[in-house]
């Protein structure tokens, strides 16, 4: 399956860049027939993944690197890859539990949202090397409603 379009960018692990990252991905994704609802969901999942990289991957260190690649495939699906070079996740299954968070003041909802608003989610992580989250949306909300 060929790639129709892609964008790749990287930025410092600064909280200021979370809104930049989600706005960029949202703007790129708007090339597809997405409604505002779809775009908002895409912005949310990017926000969660990038926040995770900053808070958990880099322990809030601000001079580290986060990379994002967004691809629009020939079948009009959207793929978002968020990559950091932080400390990685020891136990991915545990991290994905709805109410688990390594920081008790947070709710551990990030992965729940990412799963809810995408059709596919894979996490590759190695302690000490980093984490790569791949999120894919195969359909728009409108298409899903039409199928159901």
């Amino acid at each position: 399956m060929g790639i129709k379009n892609y964008v790749h960018f990287e930025f410092s692990s600064l909280p200021e860049n979370v809104s930049f990252a989600r706005a960029c991905v949202g703007a790129f994704a708007s090339q597809l027939d997405y409604t505002l609802d779809d775009i908002e969901e895409i912005k949310l999942v990017v926000s969660e993944a990038v926040s995770n990289s900053i808070i958990h991957g880099y322990d809030n260190k601000t001079n580290q690197k986060i990379e994002i690649t967004v691809t629009i495939n020939e079948d009009r699906s959207l793929e978002i890859i968020i990559k950091d070079y932080g400390k990685g996740i020891e136990n991915i299954e545990k991290a994905m539990e709805a109410t688990y968070s390594s920081d008790p003041s947070r709710m551990g909802l990030g992965f729940t949202f990412m799963k809810s608003f995408t059709d596919e989610m894979d996490i590759l992580s190695k302690p000490g090397e980093g984490t790569c989250v791949r999120l894919k949306r195969n359909f728009t909300n409108e298409q899903k409603e039409a199928f159901s």
């Binding site: 926040s51 947070r106 949202f113």
Partner: peptide, 13 residues
């Protein structure tokens, strides 16, 4: 206009 789990964490807390 936008809230994610960081914002929600503040509300729940």
């Amino acid at each position: 206009s936008f809230v994610d789990s960081s914002g929600l964490g503040v509300i729940i807390g």
